[in-house]
Design a protein around this nucleic acid. Structure first.
Lengths: 208, 208
DNA sequence: GTCTATATTTCGATAGAC
DNA sequence: GTCTATCGAAATATAGAC
């Protein structure tokens, strides 16, 4: 408990004091661990990934990781927080809104789509490790976790909206996920044509 | 290798000789293990579930499970096969089809929706354990696994279809998943109103 | 078919040198 | 910050009695 190392007591909080403000991003070891973990957690799943493998891929030993993170779960949480932040920023748009209209939802999904395309690996990892992440979630209700998902459920549950509209809001969200994840081997997600076509589909779905 | 027990060499094949053809389904121990595993794999994930827990919940010991299944993975595979069978039957409809039209896709999704509603726990487990299942998949290319997903990718990749249509086919599939899984806490999946509304949404998505 | 051990292995985590 | 070495805790799987 009395260490003077990066693995400090913040749990999984991203180090907000991004220190080396340079041009050729030095990529801290801490971040390199995160990147490698992201790959492996996605490929094999969190539980099936060992710290040994992460260390091997980075060229040092398992023990070194513990200088940077307190536990394996901490690494996962750090990744989760990265993504969580993106989602929170997206939902920020409709903070304060009493009621969410179909138009607002469409706007929201449009920016969410951009973010997901840009950060697909992160979302993919999340998708493929739902069970573990939800377990960690349960064990950490201490946090400020008015989580993303809670807010989403809140919106989609709003009884002042017709069920029809809520079904379509949910469906349009699913459309994004399916094209980026289910269809990731069938529809080239890098293609420039894809996003506009998906936006069109979403638009049709949300038309009154 | 020379056992005379149910855990025989079939790997994970469902016992196709459904023996006790009675009215009050005796529910074999083999099936009860499967049901319990389904619950736990969904709640906590495959890796985080121990055979001990499964046994506890069933009221006998870990060792007894090994009489019925050769390994923990075998249990997962048996569950996977249950679901796989459903998907194969659904896709059977468009076996022989040179090209899949939007109309055919809509019909397919309609029956898929029925099946998914009826077997939601099974699909939910699958959704929440993608990483493990894909890993097992890789290690078992020996099987007849022209898997479901392969066939799906095949259809959604068909270059003779406009990209626009393929995006919408994929989106409509995602709509089902999202309403049944993402929105499972927001939109009561048991509701009678839900399926028709979802079908309407899918129809709009697939309109030419 | 189910039990009581027990073998075996793997992996997260720590201690302490450098 | 990274290393070697090791501890300790599961958890899968097996052996053999009942």
């Amino acid at each position: 408990m009395s260490r003077s190392s990066p693995a400090g007591a913040t749990g999984a909080g991203e180090d907000s004091s991004a220190p080396p403000r340079g041009e050729a991003r030095p990529t801290s070891t801490r971040d390199r661990i995160l990147d490698t973990a992201l790959q492996l957690f996605t490929e094999k799943g969190f539980d099936a990934t060992t710290l040994q493998e992460i260390a091997d891929r980075l060229g040092f030993t398992k023990a070194a990781i513990y200088y940077h993170y307190r536990s394996k779960e901490d690494i996962l949480m750090a990744l989760h927080m990265r993504m969580h932040q993106l989602g929170v920023e997206a939902l920020e748009q409709l903070r304060e809104q009493r009621v969410v209209t179909l138009e607002m939802w469409e706007t929201l999904l449009s920016s969410l789509l951009d973010e997901m395309v840009a950060q697909r690996p992160l979302f993919l990892m999340h998708e493929r490790n739902q069970a573990v992440l939800e377990r960690l979630h349960r064990e950490e209700h201490d946090a400020q976790h008015e989580d993303l998902q809670v807010r989403l459920v809140q919106i989609l549950s709003d009884p002042s909206l017709p069920l029809r509209d809520r079904v379509r809001m949910c469906s349009s969200l699913g459309a994004i996920f399916s094209v980026l994840f289910i269809g990731r081997d069938a529809l080239d997600p890098g293609s420039e044509e894809l996003a506009p076509l998906l936006r069109d589909a979403i638009h049709d779905l949300l038309a009154p």
